[in-house]
Design a binder for these strands. Structure first.
Lengths: 114, 114
DNA sequence: CGCAATTCCTACTTTTTGGTAACTATGCCA
DNA sequence: TGGCATAGTTACCAAAAAGTAGGAATTGCG
């Protein structure tokens, strides 16, 4: 039997939740994943997520980029064009995210009875 | 093609994240799931999660109970005994949670490079 | 010149979340 | 009588997350 305390303190749940448990991260990943080209521009995401403010989207994307889940490609044009896409690491997270989504679809009715 | 906006506003990710994306919920579920008997008392969980305050644990358990993921059984003894366990709905969430955990174990090193 | 488009950034404020410490109730045990 | 244990609650405070509003940079277009 492993040392439960030590295992707990390095728990991956805590890391994942503290990094991606915010209001918008999973949603952005989901949008990028379901996009047909695999690529979305800043304002395309904004239009998909109308109630996410510009500031929060920018902040969320920066966080995901720092965490190497999202790749940011800048085209030096005017007006500027910036394209976002999932990295390999980002793509590897998607099965877990869609598992959560599927659970939500199937079971959330049992949860929201109040 | 479905109406992306409507689909988005009812998105299961938002519901799941807003209900269980807090600091302790997933961790409590995980602890209950891995317990051998499937049952844990309040102070047992506290001892497993030493850095979760009494208040937060109580609050988290109450939230999970309201959401029907956790069952709370009170034994009218002195001193009181209260046992917590996963409901069927709670158990149904576990594959998604462990998917997240497994992803964390495998990929978090790629993420924390700063 | 003035405005539009695009992708941000910054200051300020509000809301939400989490933490600390103290208090409750009950009965056993010395 | 005075702890001790269990499972909480409450009031208060600090920190973090999120929202609002405005600015900045670039260049083409009328």
């Amino acid at each position: 039997m492993a040392d439960i305390q030590a295992e707990y303190l390095a728990c991956p749940i805590r890391q994942v939740v503290s990094r991606f448990g915010d209001k918008w991260s999973m949603l952005v990943l989901f949008m990028l994943n379901r996009s047909e080209t695999g690529v979305l521009r800043f304002n395309e995401i904004r239009r998909l997520m109308t109630d996410c403010s510009q500031k929060m989207l920018s902040q969320t994307l920066k966080n995901l980029e720092r965490s190497h889940l999202v790749h940011r490609e800048v085209y030096p044009e005017v007006p500027p064009r910036v394209e976002y896409s999932l990295t390999d690491t980002g793509r590897s997270l998607m099965p877990a995210v869609t598992a959560l989504v599927d659970w939500g679809k199937e079971h959330f009715a049992e949860v929201v009875t109040d």
